[in-house]
């Protein structure tokens, strides 16, 4: 069971990232819990300088851009 956090105040890119991450998990058949982190102070607890950020099991795997589904699958499988 993976824990996936989406960091972002709710901008368009954050919603896009969440959709991609959910699709990736579903199509790879990986069970994951999705948590949206929208509070700015909580987001800053992670070391990122721009949103959207993607965190898999408390490790920041991408920030400031939208990864492809294939990338997210790799992170989830790792």
């Amino acid at each position: 069971m993976k824990t996936v956090k989406i960091l972002g105040p709710g901008c368009a890119n954050c919603r896009k990232l969440e959709a991609i991450a959910r699709d990736a998990a579903a199509s790879a058949g990986i069970e994951a819990e999705f948590i949206k982190v929208t509070d700015m102070n909580d987001i800053l607890a992670f070391d990122i300088l721009s949103t959207p950020g993607l965190v898999v099991d408390d490790k920041v795997v991408s920030s400031g851009r939208i990864p492809t589904q294939a990338e997210v699958k790799e992170w989830l499988a790792a």
């Binding site: 105040p9 901008c11 954050c14 700015m40 990122i48 300088l49 721009s50 949103t51 959207p52 400031g64």
Partner: peptide, 11 residues
């Protein structure tokens, strides 16, 4: 865009 302004400012 605000996606960059707020986190970068706080950072």
């Amino acid at each position: 865009c605000s996606c960059t302004i707020v986190p970068l400012f706080a950072g």
